[in-house]
């Protein structure tokens, strides 16, 4: 049972949010996790997400916007089903991060921050993702892929396209 009538979220996520707000000494603490989980389900932080999250936490919509715009992983526009995030920060750059990014652009036929017409893939150049010692690295949604070569990228993206790799947001059957 959700405490919010007509929640835009799935019953599972709504229930999770109901619990999340009780977890912390201050309700507002749940804001960043809620936005992430909402984005995982909805695909991005939509206006509807902002409004419901604000309502759940007794915040102004403006508070939510102010916070969400601070964090680079939160987006207010839809991305592809598989959001390919290629790191080009120093350790990755030294080991071919930009080549990997270029390769992804060619392979997917899209530029940075674009989504393929079928909505399957989007591409993003990102800052350090914390996989420096296995550079170059990328994340597809939350899954790490590293020690990349163009061939390996082909293989990985093909597998995603074929639905063979499930990332954590999909494992729960969502």
């Amino acid at each position: 049972m959700s405490t919010i009538a007509n929640s835009i979220f799935s019953p599972e996520l709504a229930a999770r949010f109901d619990k999340l707000v009780t977890l912390y000494p201050v309700k507002r603490s749940a804001l960043v996790p809620m936005l992430l989980y909402a984005q995982d389900e909805v695909g991005y932080v939509s206006e509807a997400v902002i409004q419901e999250v604000a309502q759940r936490l007794d915040l102004f919509d403006l508070d939510v916007r102010s916070v969400l715009s601070y964090y680079s992983m939160l987006r207010t526009k839809p991305a592809g089903k598989y959001n390919v995030q290629v790191c080009t920060n120093i350790s990755c750059m030294l080991r071919g991060g930009y080549e990997i990014l270029d390769h992804c652009k060619k392979k997917l036929g899209i530029e940075n921050k674009q989504t393929t017409p079928d909505g399957q893939f989007s591409l993003e150049e990102v800052e350090c993702i914390g996989d420096c010692c296995s550079a170059p690295a990328m994340q597809v949604n939350y899954e790490f892929h590293d020690e990349l070569t163009p061939d390996k990228v082909d293989e990985i993206l093909d597998q995603y396209a074929a639905g063979k790799i499930l990332d954590s947001t999909q494992k729960d059957g969502k």
Partner: peptide
């Protein structure tokens, strides 16, 4: 409120 961060930070209305 303030939106965005760094040099993109800006004051925004509600």
């Amino acid at each position: 409120a303030v939106e965005n961060r760094g040099s993109s930070s800006t004051i925004v209305p509600n």
